[in-house]
Every structure is written in structure tokens, then in C-alpha cells.
Nucleic acid binder design. Structure first.
Lengths: 222, 222
DNA sequence: GTCTATATGGAGATAGAC
DNA sequence: GTCTATCTCCATATAGAC
């Protein structure tokens, strides 16, 4: 990535804008670097001068999305009180934001291999992911949840993972207006909240010890 | 796919074998059709005469695996009684079988988009998937589980999904001898079994009604 | 039917013009 | 530093030899 003179910034922005347009029109796979470059009135090499690869263009989109999404989610957090409201708001805000680009986003989330740079679990997407997880930490910290110590520290990542599941379901949800996702969100959210409430009851705590051990294993070194 | 004369069968087998070898040596991405064809002492076109695409070679591998795995899992089912043993045996048999090809398998499972032919959720992989789900149906049917009607019909697919989660974790598990997966399997399996036992207790059944509705939504039209 | 030779168009790399 | 022209290697398609 280059970012120095005003001229280069303008060129880079032009290529990025052209790429987004072509991605939306053709989808990620069908889009060619030739077409993107042509659409930005450039030679192919110019696009590669600013973006290392086709994937890098997607990464740039991802990062821009996170930057634009942050203040929106901040506002959602400020506007809600209960943990349930907050979780719902974070997730719905995210779905809303990506709604126009559902097709493009599927290119981002089509990879599950943590070794693939575009994977939501990869090292390259770690900054975006961590900023995402931080929202859930804030949602929890301001609430009055008193959970077992074995579970508490894993909760932000666990909720992020839950949100990721909903997000993936939504991306590939072909029902009208993604109605199935709406149902799924409502139903899973109440189950999640019920689980959290149960985990707070002292007599039930022993039941949740294996869950803590499970989380230790799962998040072990990831 | 062609399969007529003995000669063609032999050629097809040679190409398939060469492909497997190259996949194992180079990994799926780095393997080229040129190299596969050369390794089979053929022109590139010959490989395409027998296999429509590079992906088709992976599909062939997937199908052969399912054919070879079926009798092995049958044996595991015959040799075990409790549901817990059966689930563990099915899953461990599967991991054992794919152990030598963990790297190759990651190409198979790296796609999550149901629209991608190689995705475990795609239409093209439906036969393999259904045969897989049938194992779990058999494991349940022969056991004495009496679950709520709202959950019962979804259980094979649900357990398949659980097994898929373990499998994906295993594929990308970089710990020595995939020890983290072994731990995860042990811990999740006992939680799953505990959940199933609780779901059988009449006084707790109301608690599991939302779970049934959730499953209806989730498996709705998939 | 089986297979070879060759063509097409894409991602990405790079030499070098300005 | 910016960008163009061009090159390499790839998956895949196809004409046509046998």
C-alpha cells in the first residue's frame, strides 16, 4: 500500500472505487483486474502498484467497513442498556451496514481456513476481528452480569463467535429479506441470554465447570 | 466422467492417482493440471477428458473416501452399544481415515459457501453428506433415547453438524498430534450427551421447546 | 472414443519510461 | 515515485489426429 502524495492518494481512491463498483456488478470471482483497471482508466500494473493483489482490495474494503462501522456501533451501545438489547443492536447494525454488499461479503467469508488471509480467523484480519470483539467486551462490562470466573474471560470471544455464526447464516440466507436470519437471531438470542442467566445462579455453577474447561481448550492458543 | 472400456478406466485411474500424489506433495492450490498430467504421462487435455476440472478431481477423492469409509463406520457401529461410544467411534474413525490427507482435506473444507460445489453444504456434495447423516440416524435409532418430538427429527442432522464442527477444528488444528481436537472431542461429547439426557427428563421438556423451534428455523429449507 | 497440440484469457510480476 | 507495456504461468476450451 502506498500513501504519499495527494496525487497517489487520489489514484488509489479511484482504483478502490472502481474495484468496488466492478465487485458489485460482477461479483468478486467474475471481476478481473483488467476490468477494474480499465474502469479506473489505468493500466493493470497501476492497480497492482497500489494493491498487492485482488484480495488486497477486499482487505481494504473490510478495513474501511470496520472504520465506518465503529462509530455506528458506539452509538448503538450508548443507546441501549440491557445486554440483550446491546447484543441485538450490535448484530443488527452490522447486518444493516453490509446489506447492500451481501454478495461481495460472501467472498470475504467464503474462506474458513485460518491460514487464508481473507478468513475471519486469519492473522491478517486480526485487527478487524479484535476491534469487533472489543464491542462485545464493552457490551458485557457495562452490564451487571456476574459469571463464573471460568467463563467470564472467554465471553467476548464467545459472543463474537456467536455473532459470526449469525452473520454467516445471513450471508448465505436466500429467504426473502433474509427472514430466516431474523427468526434465528430472535430465537438464539433468547437462548443465549437464558444460558447466561442460568450460569449466574450459584447452585447451577458446578454444571458450568465443564463449559469453562471446554472454552479453555477451544480458545487455547488461537 | 467417462467409464467404458478397460483402457479408459485404467487411464482415468492413472490420472486420479497422479493427482492425489501431486496434491499430497504440493497441496491443492500449488498443484497444477500440467504437473498432474505430466506425472500421469498424458497431455493436459487427457486429464480434462476424464475430469471436468481440478475441483472434479477433489470431488472424486471425496466420493472415494465416502465409499471406503462406509464399511469402516458400519463396523464401528456394530462394535458399540451406547450412543456415546457410537458417536465417538464414528468421529474418531473419520479423523483416522483422513489423517494422512489432512492438508488436502483442508482444500475440501476451506469453502463454506453452499453455492460452492466443494462446500460440505453444497448440492453437489449432498449425496456424500446424506450418507454421512445416515450414520448418525442409525446411531440414534438403535439407542434407547426418547427425545421430545420437536427435537427428535432434527437430531441426525444436528449431530452431523456437531461432527462437522469437530472435523473442521481438527483440519486446522496445528497442535502436536491434534491434541487440542482430542480434548475438544472428549469435552464436547460429554456435554452433548448431558444435554440429550436432560432433554429426556419430562419436567425439563418445556425448556427445550425453544430449541425445537430454533432447529425448525435453522434447518427450515436447507 | 481417446487423446494431443494448441489457443484463450486471467492473475500476478517486472522492466523500464517519465 | 507513478505508471505502462509486456511477460510468465495457470485453468480451461477446442480442433482435430488416430
Amino acid at each position: 500500500m502506498v500513501r504519499q502524495t495527494p496525487k497517489s492518494e487520489e489514484t488509489q481512491a479511484r482504483i478502490f472505487a472502481a474495484a468496488l463498483q466492478v465487485f458489485r456488478e460482477r461479483g468478486f470471482e467474475a471481476a478481473t483486474m483488467r476490468e477494474i483497471a480499465a474502469s479506473a482508466h489505468m493500466a493493470v500494473g497501476a492497480a497492482y502498484y497500489y494493491f498487492d493483489s485482488k484480495d488486497a482490495l477486499v482487505m481494504a474494503y473490510y478495513e474501511r467497513a470496520q472504520n465506518e462501522l465503529s462509530p455506528l456501533i458506539d452509538a448503538q451501545l450508548a443507546a441501549s442498556r440491557t445486554l440483550e438489547q446491546r447484543l441485538r443492536n450490535i448484530i443488527e447494525q452490522k447486518l444493516d451496514y453490509f446489506e447492500p454488499d451481501r454478495k461481495l461479503v460472501s467472498a470475504l467469508t467464503a474462506h474458513i481456513d485460518p491460514a487464508h488471509p481473507l478468513s475471519p480467523f486469519s492473522a491478517s484480519t486480526a485487527p478487524v476481528r479484535n476491534s469487533d470483539i472489543a464491542f462485545f467486551k464493552r457490551a458485557i462490562d457495562d452490564s451487571s452480569m456476574k459469571l463464573p470466573k471460568s467463563i467470564q474471560p472467554h465471553l467476548p470471544r464467545l459472543l463474537w463467535l456467536y455473532q459470526m455464526g449469525i452473520f454467516l447464516f445471513w450471508v448465505f440466507d436466500r429467504s426473502r429479506n433474509q427472514e430466516r436470519t431474523q427468526l434465528l437471531l430472535a430465537k438464539t438470542l433468547s437462548i443465549v441470554l437464558l444460558g447466561l442467566k442460568l450460569a449466574q445462579l450459584p447452585p447451577l455453577r458446578p454444571l458450568f465447570r465443564p463449559a469453562g474447561e471446554l472454552l479453555d481448550t477451544f480458545f487455547g492458543e488461537a
